[in-house]
Design a protein around this nucleic acid. Structure first.
Length: 577
RNA sequence: UGCCUCUUGGUGUAACGGUAGCACAACUGACUCUGGAUCAGUUUGUCCAGGUUCGAAUCCUGGAGAGGCAACCA
């Protein structure tokens, strides 16, 4: 799926600092002829749009430099990992349009090697088994401003450590009774150098390896080993791992000493880590914990609720994968902490859907319109354009008769001058059908309009004014005799404030937008019965983009999710006065 | 009162010592059988103070502000 098919010179696009970094390494011959990146999710949750940014970066850089990107499940902690998460992760990445080819790996693939490295570190006096409790260790470790105190187990002879490590592996100790620590520097200003844990005991079964192991490597130990073993050249992650980098390099150094770095093209491949800023988007939250809380408390319908920033949620909402990718390209890669306006995402979605979505007519808040100079039972057909942005999409026939449904908001009893829609004495165009002049209306005792009356100009069938005079307003409609009532879900932003994380003392759940989902029934032109998820979102003319819900739709009976509204400049005029 | 990182319009970013540009948003106008789309145009910015330089968003010094690090999570 090439993005550079426009003929534009690739060198013209500005390079972000990571692309520059890779380019320099390639030029210096450090990659052995192949750039290798990796996307390493832990299968303990669903991917969200923040992950999409990383996926686009990891796969995108590999593609740009003609290399490969490995999908590697970082399953080093059996506590919350499962195949369900693993499968969803794969599906989401494929949906985005990326392909890892043969390069699917799992941290668990390397457990034997990792253990072997651990034993060698013990044998060379670079690691020891520590029996300090977590509370005791917390005191020993110290705080960033003060050096730590060495563990009493720090100088245990290697042979004893080796025996204890083997006992750990053999299950002779209880969970948490001891751990394997690297012996580095208890006085380092970098906490991660103060004898970090390499292995801990955990008897929960691993989702793939079952009870084969009762000890599991920590991320800081496992990640550089995985990268090195796979010949990864460029390991990109988010900013919070920046302080872990010296430890990453320490592990790679040890592997180098052990002669374990892979060679490619006569070059020893040393993986390097660099960090970039994670994606933040306004009016939503991105933390796995908070998203999980929304799901668990039933505040959304699930991980794939169309209001969720998860990839499965966006997909169910009707966001095209291309739009998500275009958005990720657009936000760029930097080290600044930032929050991207959700409007930019929505803009990417509209931009994509405007080009691709077929147009249909549906009325969300209906009021009856009667064409008084048309006989009951009289019907006409008109040609409707399927997509003005794509002539190849052709036209379709739409039927109409004496009674139609039109949008309540398209009528005003006493309108301001700039209102170009229905009101007594005014003429509008009924899209694709004819010109219509409003002559009167009825209302109930509360002043709610119940019926709009008027006359049509039969000579304008097809929408053209016979004398060529200009008609300012065009409104959409549905034929009352044939309209289909279909359920729609009107989605809006999940939170009512820009930054739900802003105040740590305020429960973010109180900031949910109570209007983020409104259910309604749309009166639709009959063609809409055939809408299916595989065809993507359709545009309800003048209203927005709507996508058949993949779960709740039945054949011939779609349930529509509103993906995005159309820009509405009348709303701005009306609001501004 | 430790270490590391960052600071460019409202928001996200570009400019690698040489005209501060782009996208989104906003605002004008044109066009339009979607008050959509499209097209043209406008408004808004280098955190502060010094220094180096013919010339600084960029280099140096100091300050201010923001974020990260003290899980046997990743």
């Amino acid at each position: 799926m090439s993005e550079n098919d426009t003929g534009a010179a690739p060198s013209a696009a500005p390079k972000h600092f990571l692309e520059q970094w890779i380019e320099d390494d390639v030029a210096a011959g450090r990659t052995g002829g192949k750039v290798v990146t990796r996307f390493p999710p832990e299968p303990n949750g669903y991917l969200h749009i923040g992950h999409a940014k990383a996926i686009c970066l990891d796969f995108g850089m590999a593609e740009k430099f003609g290399g490969e990107c490995h999908l590697r499940l970082d399953d080093t902690n059996p506590t919350k990992e499962s195949d369900e998460f693993a499968e969803n992760i794969k599906e989401d990445i494929r949906w985005l349009g990326f392909d890892w080819g043969e390069h699917f790996y799992s941290a668990a693939d390397y457990f034997d090697t990792m253990y072997e490295i651990a034993e060698r570190l013990v044998q060379t006096g670079r690691a020891y088994v520590c029996f300090l409790s977590q509370e005791e260790w917390k005191k020993h470790r110290g705080i960033p401003t003060e050096p730590g105190i060495p563990s009493p187990w720090r100088d245990t002879p290697p042979e004893e450590n080796l025996a204890r490590l083997r006992d750990m592996k053999a299950g002779k100790y209880k969970d948490g009774e001891c751990c394997l620590r690297a012996k580095i520097d208890m006085a380092s200003p970098n906490i991660h150098f103060r004898d970090p844990v390499l292995y801990r005991i955990n008897r929960l079964p691993h989702y793939h390896l079952g009870t084969k192991w009762c000890i599991y490597p920590m991320y800081d130990f496992a990640h550089p080993i995985e990268d090195a073993l796979e010949g990864v050249t460029h390991s990109m992650c988010t900013l919070e791992f920046e302080v872990h980098r010296p430890l990453y390099d320490w592990v790679v150094d040890r592997m180098d000493e052990m002669g374990m770095l892979v060679e490619r093209g006569g070059v020893k491949i040393r993986p390097h880590q660099r960090e970039f800023s994670r994606l933040g988007i306004s009016y939503t939250v991105m933390s796995k914990r908070k998203l999980a809380e929304l799901v668990e408390k039933g505040l959304v319908s699930g991980w794939d609720d169309p209001r969720m920033p998860t990839l499965c949620g966006l997909r169910r909402r009707g966001y095209p994968a291309r739009a998500v990718r275009a958005f990720c390209e657009g936000v760029g890669i930097t080290k600044f902490i930032s929050t991207t306006d959700v409007g930019i995402l929505e803009s990417a979605v509209r931009d994509e859907l405007n080009k691709s979505a077929p147009r249909r007519m549906a009325v969300l808040d209906p009021v009856k319109l009667v064409i008084e100079n048309m006989a009951p039972g009289e019907t006409h057909e008109c040609d409707a354009v399927n997509n003005p942005e794509d002539p190849a999409a052709g036209t379709r026939k739409v039927r109409f008769g004496r009674e139609l449904w039109v949008e309540r908001a398209d009528f005003m009893k006493d309108p301001p001058k700039k209102f170009h829609r229905l009101s007594p004495g005014r003429e509008v165009r009924l899209k694709y059908a004819c010109l219509f002049t409003c002559t009167g209306f009825s209302e109930d005792e509360n002043g709610n309009v119940t019926e709009i009356r008027g006359t049509w100009d039969p000579a304008s069938l097809g929408g053209n004014a016979p004398d060529g005079h200009a008609v300012r307003g065009t409104i959409h409609w549905a034929d009352a005799a044939t309209a289909l009532a279909l359920p729609v879900r009107l989605y809006d932003r999940l939170f009512s404030v820009e930054n739900p994380d802003a105040d740590p003392d305020r429960d973010f759940k109180e900031l949910l937008n109570p209007e983020s989902r409104k259910d309604a029934t749309a009166l639709c032109e009959p063609a809409l019965a055939a809408a299916v998820p595989a065809d993507g979102a359709v545009q309800f003319e003048r209203l927005g983009y709507f996508f058949p819900d993949p779960i709740d739709s039945k054949p011939g009976a779609p349930v529509f999710n509103r993906t995005a509204t159309l820009r509405d400049s009348w709303a701005k005029i009306a609001k501004g006065g």
